[in-house]
Measured scan of single mutants.
Amino acid sequence: NITNLCPFDEVFNATRFASVYAWNRKRISNCVADYSVLYNFAPFFAFKCYGVSPTKLNDLCFTNVYADSFVIRGNEVSQIAPGQTGNIADYNYKLPDDFTGCVIAWNSNKLDSKVGGNYNYLYRLFRKSNLKPFERDISTEIYQAGNKPCNGVAGFNCYFPLRSYGFRPTYGVGHQPYRVVVLSFELLHAPATVCGPKKST
């Protein structure tokens, strides 16, 4: 009989979020998941679920829940969905086509923008091939755009693969920082350890 609540607040209220190319993952297990707390949290810009209804989450049990978190621009949030393409979905964070879970995003301009620009948040701009679902690539190898080998030196046709967002408070909404948490639900042939409040007695 599990009684402790799942530590969703640790994920959602973290002081610093990860850059999207180096997205953070927390495994959540052996706890009671009260999703209504999240669902009623006012400032969400997006709360979209795939393969599961957000209002039914509290009735369900899962083997594991993974909480992935990172920061992207407002106009990139739409790429955090199954079957998407674009710089983020291709080179930074890719969801599987059969994704079961929820994508939760909110504007973090007050936290993550600075006058003069916040350059701490990076994304991958160049990559030889697209990421596989949930693949994480933190390499900083110089990207070779031409035929000539770069030998690890940036220059003509040789690019550092990461780019900084440089968030400023005055940017338009599409270019403002958004914090994103992706909850993915794993249902294995194993005992369920993460259940909603109704199922955990």
Rank of each mutant, 00 (worst) to 15 (best):
N1V: 06
N1S: 01
I2M: 08
I2L: 02
I2W: 03
I2E: 12
I2S: 11
T3N: 11
N4S: 08
N4V: 05
L5T: 08
L5V: 06
P7C: 10
P7S: 12
F8W: 02
D9S: 07
D9P: 01
D9R: 03
E10R: 02
F12L: 03
R16L: 11
Y21F: 13
A22M: 06
A22D: 08
K26V: 12
R27C: 04
R27V: 10
S29K: 12
S29Y: 09
V32E: 09
V32A: 15
V32Y: 07
A33Y: 04
A33L: 10
D34L: 00
S36Q: 03
V37C: 08
Y39N: 09
Y39V: 14
F41V: 14
A42V: 09
A42I: 10
P43Q: 07
P43H: 12
F44R: 02
F45W: 11
F47Y: 03
F47I: 01
V52F: 08
S53T: 15
S53D: 05
P54Y: 14
P54K: 09
P54G: 03
T55I: 08
T55C: 11
T55N: 15
K56Q: 05
N58D: 11
N58Q: 06
D59T: 02
L60R: 03
L60K: 13
L60A: 06
L60F: 08
T63N: 07
T63L: 03
N64D: 15
N64S: 10
N64V: 04
Y66T: 03
Y66V: 06
S69T: 01
R73T: 02
R73P: 14
R73Q: 02
G74R: 05
N75R: 11
S78D: 05
S78E: 14
I80V: 13
G83Q: 10
T85N: 14
T85R: 06
N87Q: 02
I88V: 01
D90L: 02
L95I: 03
L95V: 08
D97T: 06
D97Q: 15
D97N: 10
D97A: 00
D98K: 02
T100Y: 15
I104Y: 06
I104L: 06
N107E: 01
N109G: 02
N109R: 08
N109C: 04
N109Q: 01
K110D: 06
K110T: 02
K110Q: 11
L111S: 05
L111A: 09
K114A: 00
K114R: 14
K114N: 00
V115L: 11
V115N: 00
G116Q: 00
G116R: 00
N118K: 00
N120T: 00
N120P: 14
L122V: 03
Y123S: 03
L125G: 15
L125A: 13
L125T: 06
L125Q: 14
L125K: 13
F126Q: 04
F126A: 04
K128H: 02
K128R: 08
K128C: 01
K128M: 12
K128G: 07
S129P: 09
S129R: 06
N130Y: 02
K132Q: 11
K132L: 00
K132P: 02
F134Y: 09
I138C: 03
I138V: 01
I138Q: 11
S139D: 14
T140V: 12
T140F: 15
T140K: 05
E141Y: 08
E141I: 09
Y143A: 13
Q144H: 04
A145F: 15
A145P: 00
N147H: 09
N147E: 01
K148R: 09
K148G: 06
P149W: 11
N151I: 05
N151M: 04
G152E: 14
G152Y: 00
V153M: 10
A154W: 11
A154I: 03
G155R: 09
G155T: 15
F156D: 02
F160Y: 15
F160E: 13
R163N: 15
R163W: 01
R163D: 04
R163L: 07
P169S: 01
P169K: 00
T170L: 10
T170R: 00
Y171W: 08
P177A: 04
S184L: 15
F185Y: 07
L187T: 15
L187S: 08
L187C: 12
L187D: 02
L188F: 03
H189L: 03
A190M: 06
P191G: 11
P191N: 15
P191Y: 07
G196C: 03
G196L: 02
G196V: 14
P197Y: 06
P197N: 12
P197F: 14
K198F: 14
K199W: 11
K199N: 02
S200P: 14
S200D: 14
T201R: 14
